[in-house]
Amino acid sequence: MSDRELVLTFGHEELVIRKRYEALGIVNDLLIAAWFLIGSFFFFSTDLTYAGTWLFVLGSAQLLVRPVIRLARLIHLGRLRERAKQAGAPSRATVTDSRASGSGRVPR
């Protein structure tokens, strides 16, 4: 192992959960972009300015969803790890870093 090599080990279930929350975050970001883009175009017409304003409000409110998704992911993964500990399963998430002192294994 080189001095700069970092090895991460995660369980299958944790990777699936991470991928799902990542996809949810991407969908959220796309919707935010759509609300702001459509709202911007609506401002070119005086008849649609009111609707455009509401799209900006919707997009701004949806910006609050981003940290909620991240927090939900952290809570979900924390519960997953806690269940694994209670079941007596060894911790699946470990980091191996050759720069660390001792064995080089740092539990996460």
Results as ranks from 00 to 15, higher is better:
Thr94Leu: 14
His76Trp: 03
Leu58His: 03
Arg83Asp: 13
Asn28Tyr: 03
Arg108Leu: 13
His12Pro: 09
Trp35Arg: 03
Ile17Ser: 14
Leu71Asp: 00
Phe41Thr: 05
Val16Lys: 13
Leu37Met: 14
Ser40Ala: 13
Thr46Gln: 08
Leu6Thr: 08
Val7Arg: 12
Gly52Met: 04
Trp54Tyr: 08
Gln62Ile: 11
Trp54Glu: 05
Ser101Trp: 08
Thr53Ala: 09
Val16Glu: 15
Lys19Leu: 14
Leu58Glu: 06
Ser60Asp: 06
Ser2Arg: 02
Leu30His: 06
Ala23Asp: 08
Trp35Ser: 01
Ile26Thr: 09
Asp97Ser: 08
Leu15Asn: 13
Phe10Cys: 01
Ala89Trp: 13
Val16Ala: 15
Thr94Cys: 11
Leu74Ile: 08
Tyr21Ala: 07
Ser2Thr: 06
Phe36Met: 07
Ser103Leu: 03
Ala93Arg: 13
Thr94Arg: 14
Leu80Asp: 00
His76Met: 09
Ser45Pro: 05
Ile69Asn: 01
Ala93Trp: 14
His12Tyr: 08
Ala23Arg: 06
Gly52Ile: 04
Ala34Gln: 02
Ile32Gln: 00
Leu6Gln: 06
Arg20Phe: 12
Leu63Gly: 00
Phe36Cys: 05
Pro107Tyr: 09
Leu31Phe: 10
Arg70Trp: 01
Gln86His: 11
Arg105Thr: 14
Tyr21Arg: 01
Gly104Ile: 03
Glu14Leu: 01
Glu13Asn: 15
Arg108His: 07
Ser60Thr: 12
Asp29Ile: 02
Asp29Trp: 02
Thr96His: 09
Arg73Met: 02
Ala23Gln: 11
Ala51Pro: 04
Asp47Met: 09
Ala72Asp: 04
Ile75Gln: 12
Phe56Asn: 04
Phe10Leu: 04
Asp47Cys: 08
Leu8Met: 09
Glu82Tyr: 10
Lys85Phe: 12
Arg4Met: 05
Phe10Glu: 07
Ser2Phe: 06
Glu13Thr: 15
Gly59Lys: 00
Thr53Asn: 12
Gly102Asn: 09
Ser103Asn: 13
Arg18Met: 07
Leu77Asn: 00
Ala23Val: 03
Ala51Lys: 01
Ile69Val: 12
Gly11Ser: 15
Asp47Arg: 06
Arg66Gly: 02
Asp47Ser: 10
Leu64Trp: 15
Arg66Pro: 03
Glu5Lys: 08
Ile32Phe: 00
Asp97Cys: 02
Leu64Arg: 01
Val65Ile: 13
Val95Lys: 15
Gly25Lys: 10
Ser91Ile: 03
Ser101Met: 07
Leu48Ser: 11
